[in-house]
Nucleic acid binder design. Structure first.
Lengths: 150, 150
DNA sequence: TATTGTTATACTCTATAACTATA
DNA sequence: TATAGTTATAGAGTATAACAATA
């Protein structure tokens, strides 16, 4: 159901995160020594879950060749490995290595390290906000975590 | 006050918007015919308010030369004009033209045109979420709208 | 024939360094 | 001397086109 309040909430959220998210991503990237593009890829993966390269291209609406170059860079650093798809031999699944999973988790920590925008809310409001956002996230699993397609 | 719930809310929001915001920005960009970088600049401006070029570089943590190139591109399309600062003759203020303000508003509309992530919430929840986000935005004016520095 | 991924190449975005003008 | 902005140039990020392998 799309309401006026919902659209206002969306616009406010967009204005809050449009610049804040890339800035924090950049900070984490600098601190960890992995480029923002590679970090974004690690975020899209989950430990133990293989993701077809095609899925990344669809998700980002980018060209497949870009996914190839990102995957190459991640594999060079041993953060990720290409695995064969069990039935379709055209498909390659990207899987986090142990190091990759560690870097990913470390990045999430750095991301929440500096003072957060939500700190201005009361404790009760922060819980309220978390619950609302979780409900939204739960309704769009592909955005928050990749489907277990392996 | 930073609580566990606040950090969880932040991480959830980050996962929701990390890819969604750039994607919608890209959609709006394609539909309107203005590159994502230029659109982001228009978003940072407000009709009738001059913003020093330096402020954009600080906000994005980018090099001043990038702001120069973006401003050149926007000026070429008559979306923006450089104005002198009233007292400091080194500073140039960027101001939206009438066309620039129109494009900016149109982009905001396109941005909310497709089904929104918040549509899964009830009407009451959407209002709640809007109010919480507005409280956050109100506490960080520089993020949501540039200070009236002209 | 259509799809996944790769290679080679070109374009766009963003940074670095050297510079001018003003403070 | 320090800061705002510009220019020229270089690098990173991302796309396009042609291709190989598989479906």
């Amino acid at each position: 159901m799309s309401t006026k309040a919902g659209r206002e909430a969306w616009r406010t959220a967009f204005e809050l995160f449009r610049d804040e998210a890339p800035r924090r991503l950049g900070d984490a990237s600098a601190e960890i020594g992995v480029s923002p593009g590679l970090l974004k890829t690690l975020f899209h993966l989950s430990p133990g879950v293989g993701v077809p390269m095609r899925e990344l291209a669809d998700h980002w609406r980018c060209d497949a060749s870009y996914v190839t170059s990102v995957t190459d860079a991640l594999e060079e650093r041993d953060l990720v490995r290409r695995h064969p798809h069990p039935t379709d031999r055209r498909v390659k699944m990207i899987v986090l290595t142990k190091e990759g999973a560690a870097v990913r988790e470390r990045a999430f920590e750095v991301l929440s390290g500096s003072p957060l925008p939500f700190d201005v809310l009361t404790a009760a409001e922060q819980r309220q906000l978390r619950d609302l956002l979780r409900k939204v996230a739960a309704a769009r699993p592909e955005a928050a975590r990749p489907a277990a397609s392996a």
